[in-house]
Amino acid sequence: MNIAIIGCGTMGMIYAHNLGNMPGVQVSGVADLIQERADQAAAVSGAASYTNWEEMLEKERPETVAVCLPTYLHTTFVLSLAQRGLHVICEKPAALTVEDAKEMEAVCSQHGVRLFIGHVVRFFPNYRNALEQVRSGTIGEAKMAHFKRCGSYPQGVDFWYHDRAKSGGIIMDLIIHDIDFACWLFGDVESVYASVTSPDLNGMEYAQVTMKFSSGAIANLTGFWGYAGPFTTQFEISGDGGIIRFDSNQVQSLDLKIASGGSGSEEAVQVPSSPVLHDPYYLEVQHFIECIREGSEPIVSAADACRAIEIALACEQSARTGQPVRMEGMTS
């Protein structure tokens, strides 16, 4: 498959590295307004380097394009690529509004091309393992979950993350990872409640989200930009028969504690993830390419991406008003 990449920042470089090492895939071109970044992506992927994306498309004739641009540019580029008859793999979030995301989905469908949104948490082995444990009933009925995601304040060439009109802010850009996973885990969302601190001069920003599901399950999500330590993710999923815990700073992948049947003691089982050759971003884009080749449905759909945006915006509304927001008509 012939693939091109538009945008050669952090995510673009990850795509360039992974696609450049993927059997059956040729990265024909990479484009970025900054020549140096385009050249770096070209060097790791074996592609031609461009600063004009339209020239790249004309010369390289890709079948699929990976859009690794700032969020506020997603809609314009995805619509243009779809109208050219090209399949699109776009980084998350799909867009800054539900209307834009749904238009992207509709236009891609209208032109007979596929649209995939990179909600990569679904491809992290520890999260997938936890989901499988819950669905298999290992911890009984899952009723409560806590998710935490902390990292340094994002930096970029034009600091577009600093402009909420371009990035969507901490909930839309960071916590949306866990919003999507919580929906995958628990299904229909009934209501959300959120609070967000205003960024300080150093970019530190903190947000807390509570999601209530139709099943009665509750998920608490925490996001923190400005964390001084390494990027950290944590979760705890509690059921009436046990608890699953994960901390990215610990060696083990999952800490699974099963209720012992009333004896008063607990049995802790360390469940390591299977050794993987490739990182989750590789697994994600490989999956999307297989869906194009086979005409199969992806693990994460465009509709899932639209739902995540709708919930993130409801959380923003809650943070502004200080009131819970009901998700009318929300389906899984």
Results as ranks from 00 to 15, higher is better:
residue 22 M to L: 14
residue 27 V to L: 02
residue 30 V to R: 01
residue 38 A to F: 00
residue 40 Q to F: 06
residue 41 A to V: 07
residue 65 V to Q: 10
residue 68 C to E: 13
residue 69 L to M: 14
residue 70 P to E: 04
residue 72 Y to E: 07
residue 79 L to Q: 05
residue 91 E to K: 12
residue 95 A to K: 05
residue 98 V to F: 06
residue 100 D to T: 07
residue 104 M to G: 11
residue 105 E to G: 07
residue 106 A to W: 05
residue 113 V to A: 00
residue 115 L to D: 08
residue 138 T to F: 03
residue 150 C to W: 07
residue 153 Y to T: 11
residue 158 D to M: 13
residue 162 H to W: 03
residue 163 D to L: 06
residue 172 M to P: 01
residue 173 D to N: 14
residue 173 D to K: 14
residue 175 I to H: 01
residue 182 A to L: 08
residue 192 V to D: 01
residue 195 S to W: 05
residue 196 V to C: 07
residue 198 S to Q: 07
residue 200 D to E: 09
residue 203 G to W: 02
residue 211 M to I: 12
residue 212 K to M: 02
residue 227 Y to L: 02
residue 236 E to Q: 12
residue 240 D to C: 00
residue 242 G to C: 01
residue 244 I to Q: 10
residue 248 S to Y: 03
residue 249 N to W: 04
residue 252 Q to N: 10
residue 261 G to T: 09
residue 261 G to W: 14
residue 269 V to K: 03
residue 272 P to G: 01
residue 274 S to C: 10
residue 277 L to W: 00
residue 287 H to F: 06
residue 287 H to C: 05
residue 289 I to W: 03
residue 290 E to H: 15
residue 293 R to M: 12
residue 294 E to C: 11
residue 298 P to M: 11
residue 299 I to H: 11
residue 314 A to W: 08
residue 327 M to W: 04
residue 331 T to P: 02
residue 332 S to Y: 02
